[in-house]
Amino acid sequence: MYQQKDFVLTIEGLTVSFDGFKAVNDVSLYIEEQEIRVIIGPNGAGKTTVLDLICGRTKATEGSIKFKGKELTKLKEHEIVHAGVGRKFQNPSIYEDLTVFENLELSYPRGKKVWGALTFRRDQEVIDKVNEIAQMIFLQEMLSSPANLLSHGQKQWLEIGMLLIQDPELLMLDEPVAGMSVSERKQTAELLQRITKERSVLVIEHDMHFVEEIADRVTVLHQGKVLSEGSMEKVQNDPKVIEVYLGH
């Protein structure tokens, strides 16, 4: 049905078992270039675990994950990043003791080895890129403040910015608008729409309003399995989905 080469990410038969409990069970997922795909599902459905598997944080028990034809299940975390996959965590995960500038700078794709980090120079190219990204994530005024002074929403943006500066071809965001105000959510939706022009995005989100706004296609996960997939409209009207997820 699908032609392999059209997809940035091809997941087939992905299964992971924690002591016999299959948190992700025979999941297949195909993501196109420049697509925004949203994964929804009740708590504990295995959404975060799918991201963990893609980015190498958890090793798959079975199945394959191909990114631009490259098998990811055999690579180490940092190798997967270098292949072009960026990932935001569910809890904003930034460097609290460093400034916003330093947070972004550390994610800049240069000097990633010991020697490179030791001799890294903050040249104009780095400064320009950091400024450009800071502008995008609405933090240009905050560059020199320590990251622990940011609000929850701003921390979420900062982490997205740290991914953007790596310029990944696949961006994975775990609940990017959790804890954000309504206006911050709107800004984030716009941001995502803007950045997806050059890449594919895989988002996990609970906020249906937000999902509707950004998703090209939606995958519903339930008890580790794909329950339904398609446009937001189709999924919302799927009786199976209504029963387990949207019904209450």
Partner: peptide
Amino acid sequence: KSKLGRLLVAMRDSEDRVRFSGYDV
């Protein structure tokens, strides 16, 4: 004062974030 120094602080704060920013921690 090098980037490596800041990276060490970053690792102390959030090792996974460093790892998933492409560093072999």
